[in-house]
Amino acid sequence: MRTRLRTPVSALAAGALCLMAAACGSGGSAEANGGQVTSAAAKAVIADAEAAYAKYTRPQPAASVPALPSPAPRGKRLAIVTCSIPVCVTLSRGAEEAASRLGWTVTTLQSNSTPQGFVSVMDQVAADPPDALAYIPTVPDSSIRPQLAKLQAAGTKITEVAPLGDPLKQKGPVQAVVFGQSDAALTGTLMGQAVVADADGPAKSVFVWDPSFVASWGPIKNAYQKVLKGAGRQAGVLDVSNANIGKTVQGQIVSYLQAHPDTKYVALAVVDYNTGLDAALRAAGLAGKVKILSRAADASSLKAIQAGTQWASVGLELAAGGYRAVDQLIRMMMGVPLGDRADAPGWQQIYIKGNVPQTGTKPEPPDYAATYHTAWHVG
């Protein structure tokens, strides 16, 4: 990466421009860069990537939380519907901790990540409506419309985490989201910008994801591809299944790299794809030949970055995301308008070897719990 930074230009605007100056007929100059022709538009995307990379590799402060007009209600019942992969577990534990601090009774139900299992869990919640519900969907809301309608009729306040679509476009039972589409798009943009900045221009990369999560992960993939294309090179895509995390996903990644040996960066839609990947790369003689970038950094990915077996990871507010969900539910109960807190990008941070905190430190916003406790008037 170049040490100097150019004046940042909107990547979204620049990405919409054509990539080749000659093709646009703009008359702009072009230069060779990694075997690619870099147009003025591509240079702007690269400059924007370098500026974003410089910003988000610096420690990012936690967002402020507006104080409630009075103490948060106590003694409520919260149901949490989560999934089995570690990032879901971390988020749901954050919500449990937040609710417990308020004296709420929490019931956490884990679906088996199948449509049938998820619908069965939602049937269970609807049979005994709680005061509040935070859920991570496995199927679109259209598949659980009766359950949501029953909960809404019972007065249950509902927030959705990583929604499969945009439930806020329609007036329905879901009144707030965490990790909505705007958050996902920011993550994908940062992942793409990290690659472009590190490569100082066009780079051969592959984005690894589960296409069955297109409604929630599509904005991540699309934003990533947009940045790479804007810089001058289309990103590859590898489809895997989350059900095969730690089983066959690492082998699929290795097979892709063997078939595309000029690939320099592997972008993982979720950090859990790291399971078994380092060993698989070493066994295939690929260790150190590609740079691994993951999403939703956890303690193991930070350790891998320190060890040099992974290049970077985008940190998200996982446990803090659970706090954000509870905060939304509190405000709904109290009739406090959510405003942009109904769907806003959460805290994000690009971790690299130079900024990884001490081993054991969780990749979360600084002092997030105390920030929420203060806003809720919790001593």
Rank of each mutant, 00 (worst) to 15 (best):
S143L: 09
S100Y: 12
G192V: 04
Q258L: 10
L338I: 05
S216T: 15
T138G: 10
A11S: 13
Q310Y: 00
G28P: 01
K43T: 01
P66N: 07
S111V: 01
P146L: 02
D131G: 14
V206K: 09
A344V: 04
S29A: 08
W347G: 00
S39F: 04
V161L: 09
T275F: 07
A95Y: 06
G288I: 06
P69N: 14
P366N: 11
I292T: 12
S255Q: 15
Q234R: 15
V240P: 00
A312C: 09
V237H: 05
I330N: 02
Q124W: 04
G346Y: 04
W209V: 01
T275M: 11
W217N: 01
D48K: 04
A63I: 09
P137V: 02
T371A: 13
Q252M: 10
T7M: 09
V87H: 00
G15I: 03
P202H: 14
P366D: 09
L302E: 01
D123C: 07
G288F: 08
N242P: 01
P345D: 03
A203W: 13
I330E: 03
L78C: 12
A134N: 10
L78T: 05
A41S: 11
A62W: 14
G165Q: 06
S294Y: 00
G315C: 15
A21W: 07
A154H: 11
N244W: 08
Q181T: 08
T359K: 08
A154C: 08
K169E: 09
F207H: 14
I245M: 10
F213L: 09
L316C: 10
S111D: 04
T187E: 05
P219G: 08
Q147I: 03
K43C: 00
D262F: 14
Q193C: 06
I80K: 02
P140V: 12
D239H: 15
S113P: 00
A134Y: 14
P173C: 08
P202R: 12
A299C: 12
L168I: 05
T263R: 06
E31D: 14
G155S: 13
N222T: 05
V254G: 11
G321L: 03
V206L: 09
S10A: 10
V106F: 09
D48M: 06
L281P: 01
V326S: 04
S300A: 15
A127S: 10
S300G: 13
G15M: 03
A40P: 00
A30P: 01
G379I: 13
A284I: 07
W209G: 01
T82F: 08
T263L: 04
S205M: 15
V196Q: 04
K247P: 01
D272N: 05
Q348G: 02
A32P: 00
E160F: 02
S142D: 12
A44L: 07
N242M: 09
A280M: 10
S142F: 15
V177G: 05
Q250R: 13
E31L: 12
A203I: 11
P363F: 13
Q358G: 10
G308E: 08
P202Y: 15
G246Y: 13
I85V: 10
G322H: 01
P73G: 06
D131V: 11
M122Y: 03
D298L: 02
T263G: 03
T187N: 02
A47V: 03
Q258W: 13
L19I: 11
R282D: 11
A67D: 11
A42E: 02
